[in-house]
Design a protein around this nucleic acid. Sequence first.
DNA 1: TCTTTTTATATTTTATACAATCTTCAAAAA
DNA 2: TTTTTGAAGATTGTATAAAATATAAAAAGA
Lengths: 231, 231
Amino acid sequence: MAYKTRAQFVADDIRHRILSGEFPGGTQLRQDALAADYDVSRIPVREALLTLEAEGLVEFYPHRGAFTTELSVSKIRELFDLRVLLEGHLLRQAIPRMTEPVLHKAGQILLEYDAALDSGSQIDNWSDYNFAFHEALYSPAGLPEAMNLVSQLNTKSDRYIRMQLLYTREIEKAEREHHDLLEFSRQGKADAACELLERHILEACEGIVAVLEGRVQASQTPDTPHLQHQK
Amino acid sequence: MAYKTRAQFVADDIRHRILSGEFPGGTQLRQDALAADYDVSRIPVREALLTLEAEGLVEFYPHRGAFTTELSVSKIRELFDLRVLLEGHLLRQAIPRMTEPVLHKAGQILLEYDAALDSGSQIDNWSDYNFAFHEALYSPAGLPEAMNLVSQLNTKSDRYIRMQLLYTREIEKAEREHHDLLEFSRQGKADAACELLERHILEACEGIVAVLEGRVQASQTPDTPHLQHQK
DNA sequence: TCTTTTTATATTTTATACAATCTTCAAAAA
DNA sequence: TTTTTGAAGATTGTATAAAATATAAAAAGA
């Protein structure tokens, strides 16, 4: 897994560009242009796009090409409901099996993140931190397939979470909830933890929906406006 | 979606060959050989294998090729637990929204299957029938993403279900439970239906585990023995 | 003028050819 | 005997080129 093939590299980078908002939903991803961008042939680009299709970020239309996907509000709601279901399952299995090293590691991730938060808002890797924390917390459950599904759901909704954080100031709130979550886990309070987790996820969802429906005035100008949206 | 590209065709066929047991877990899938098989170049074969990798049926090792995956007993248990969780969620959402046309369609699928069962055991498309029934039953929930996850879990475990049906005689039992499930759904008995569903899934899981651990004597000789298992 | 057919162009999809990497196996060294 | 080294062969990964298909524009007919 150490070695990275070109197709994998390109896939990672295009994924990043989609999630960062550079390629909004509905953008056609031309193989030629991308191949030129990365100075590779179109074959690894195609393979990268196929990988992203499997992740749900891109959709192929035969002989017409690949387009980035876009999620409706109802789909977003569904994704977050599934996260509640699966992450609740994971957390409930994890808490009785919780160990000190795991608690320590999760706490460490939070501290790192707190520090990054103070130094300046780098939203770019917030998702990574967030996922790393949740992953650490769920790890004692020993359920890799469930983690995999959660990871998929995260990838699909990541763009929208990013957007919400850009427009609102909910990061601090999420961070506080993370600390609480960790505390409940340390104390073995599974019910309280799961209840908090459910709120944590569903309120994030409602925040996103509010932004999508324009019910929120921007608290700051987004630094990555939607560029080159072509039909 | 009507048109099928060569890569898609090849992917469909290789998937079938994996699920049917022709390519058991750990088999290396040589691109040359497959390309010759289908009389195409290696490019569509590679793309097909990438698709299957995303489905979890195949795994790529850089510069070493693609191998069919194999599931451990613990992973199989996890997959079925997740099915319980997700399908339970779907069924619970579906039952209050159940309509007569849906009930009729699900019943129709069962009748078709009953007929096929009498005429002769064609295990090959049992999975399709089974999934079609469950899909129909869950459709009123209106949760396409959840259905998608369930479909993924099914694809991954399909090989093992097939194997179990080959060695044991549990099809009739599953079929009876399907009829009961439909009846509960018709009567709006969500709790009873979900409880039955959970048993239905978990007992199938235990059957598979029993076969894998050799705790079961074959009730019949399998008609598709594991061929060409190459290291 | 409007509709249908034809042609042209752009883009995707696939084939062929080449480069990079891994595996094998024999020979040499410890 | 066991381990290590290194070239030959095999296989994957990528580039380039050709074929197939879709979209748009132009031409023909009503």
